[in-house]
Design a protein around this nucleic acid. Structure first.
Ligand SMILES: [Mn+2]
Ligand SMILES: [Mn+2]
Ligand SMILES: [Zn+2]
Ligand SMILES: [Zn+2]
Lengths: 157, 157
DNA sequence: CCTTTATTGATAATGATTATCATATTCAAT
DNA sequence: ATTGAATATGATAATCATTATCAATAAAGG
């Protein structure tokens, strides 16, 4: 039910054309897994999910492909303080879905938030402009993360 | 010239009283190193610096002490995307010196900035309040990092 | 000095990520 | 379809920052 013809999210096909990269089964399978979750998966998470459908795909390929996808800006790579890197699709069919994160330092839960983004954008724009000028620094990216305790973890020792 | 009597930054002595923790030579040496730099040192950096004065101090103690200092909130631990953790004294004699970072993705240079913090504070306050309410999340900390190219790295391939 | 507890350092183990390298796949040109 | 160069893959071993162990030390308080 996850055969090649059925995967066909055409919107990332175009990204591979012209880069010299090939859109192979492992690569599509990885994009497919990422596109079907709202969680922030580790390389091993992705490996296990892909493994169910394509048991021949190795962990090395997962790492290699993720590195490629990050470099192509199709995927974001995050560090939330547990030891493993976490990956998330950078855009959906509707374009880039920019958001920031709340990270629970007790249970590791990650919450995406997109509210307040508008106000943040305003300030970030100003800040980036000021910083670029003052330090002659070309900003390409930023991360904002709030750490603390999620609702469940506040009601425990 | 870095003997015990000479180190005596009394302001962190108090932090160890009442916690059951002892202010030992290795711990003071580590705090001393951190207090004398504006750079963002790795555990090994600190090890090497301490080693010059107290060659008997082992790397394990550096890691253990840093973990303790982070937990005591005397030191901040950062991840700037190179593989090693980076450490920075959380406060000076004047109290906490809150700031954010610019990270050059090419040469790894880290720039502290404290300008724009006031405007940021305003927005962060609002955002934290809104997020806390909406998600019932108790925020204790945040990180903001801008990634890009520093002035030197813009003028290279 | 003695006892208890906290701290230390040498060493080995861990675990996520990378490097290697021989094999397999793709794709365009016959 | 066949071929052949370029690209991609997977099993395996290597890296390397960080942790776990554990016996030896040092501090604190009588
Ligand atoms: Mn997210
Ligand atoms: Mn800093
Ligand atoms: Zn939680
Ligand atoms: Zn640079």
């Amino acid at each position: 039910m996850l055969d090649r013809a059925n995967i066909g999210h055409p919107w990332w096909h175009g990204r591979f054309r012209g880069c010299g990269y090939r859109l192979t089964i492992p690569r599509e399978a990885i994009l497919d897994v990422l596109s079907k979750t709202s969680r922030h998966l580790s390389a091993e998470d992705i490996f296990l999910a892909v493994h169910k459908v394509y048991p021949a795909v190795g962990l090395t390929t997962i790492y290699r492909t993720l590195e490629l996808l990050v470099q192509m800006r199709l995927v974001f790579k995050f560090d939330f303080g547990d030891k493993r890197a976490r990956y998330e699709l950078a855009e959906g069919t509707k374009g880039i879905r920019h958001h920031h994160h709340l990270v629970c330092t007790r249970c590791g839960r990650i919450i995406d938030y997109t509210d307040f983004i508008d106000e943040e954008k305003e300030l970030l724009g100003q800040t980036e402009k000021g910083l670029s000028k003052k330090f002659n620094f070309k900003i390409t990216n930023h991360i904002i993360q709030f750490y603390g305790l999620c609702d469940k973890c506040q009601n425990k020792g």
